[in-house]
């Protein structure tokens, strides 16, 4: 035991002198596919991570009325919580209205955020079909998909978000910690 700790420490010390970060403390265990699958809930802008399933605007209207409207208003106009719709074209004004339609650059963020954090009183309880449906309904409220839209892992990332081209990164990678 003592010898192995010493060996690990030695390896760690040696590795600090090389470009490699590799260490061999022997701490932790390999994550199982099931463990990863249960927690791997993020959705990338290209749609990576989106589960099988689909949801329509009309199904989304029913889920929204039941689980979202109490905080975000019947038509997504907010009160008491933030508005989800409206505000188109206000980015140039002194008080931009940062709704999904007027500000959000990626439709995939809708699925990601609704699933992980909403509804406020019961996060991570909506089924994939419900999340697709609510996403479709919120996009419909913002006139970004038609009333007959059905969204899935292919169609959701393809929804064109009007303000996307305005987003620029303030981070400069070759100067760590600076921008």
């Amino acid at each position: 035991m003592r010898a192995s700790i010493f060996a690990a420490a030695l390896i760690a010390v040696v590795s600090q002198a090389t470009p490699s970060l590799a260490t061999d403390y022997g701490i932790g265990k390999p994550a199982t596919p099931a463990e990863i699958a249960g927690w791997n809930i993020d959705i990338a802008p290209n749609g990576a991570g989106l589960p099988p399933g689909h949801g329509s605007v009309s199904d989304g209207a029913r889920v929204y009325a039941d689980k979202c409207a109490g905080c975000h208003g019947a038509d997504g106009l907010g009160k008491p919580m933030p508005a989800l719709a409206g505000g188109a074209g206000t980015m140039g004004s002194a008080k931009p209205d940062k709704t999904v339609g007027s500000f959000w650059p990626y439709a995939t963020t809708l699925y990601d955020y609704i699933h992980r954090a909403m509804p406020f009183n019961a996060p991570q309880t909506l089924a994939p079909d419900e999340v697709y449906a609510v996403s479709a309904y919120v996009l419909y409220l913002n006139h970004l998909v038609p009333e007959n839209a059905v969204l899935d892992a292919t169609s959701l990332p393809a929804v064109a978000m009007p303000e996307r081209g305005k987003f620029v990164s303030g981070y400069v990678p070759d100067r760590p910690g600076e921008h």
């Binding site: 993020d42 959705i43 990338a44 802008p45 980015m91 140039g92 931009p96 940062k98 999904v100 500000f103 959000w104 650059p105 990626y106 995939t108 963020t109 990601d112 955020y113 954090a117 303000e163 305005k166 987003f167 620029v168 990164s169 303030g170 981070y171 910690g177 600076e178 921008h179």
Partner: peptide
Amino acid sequence: EPWQTREETSKYSWVMPDGSVRQFNFV
């Protein structure tokens, strides 16, 4: 690539005077 989460797109970003939206403002 960044994941473009809600907290780094609709929040913690800002509209610049030229109309662009600057995100990933870390320091």
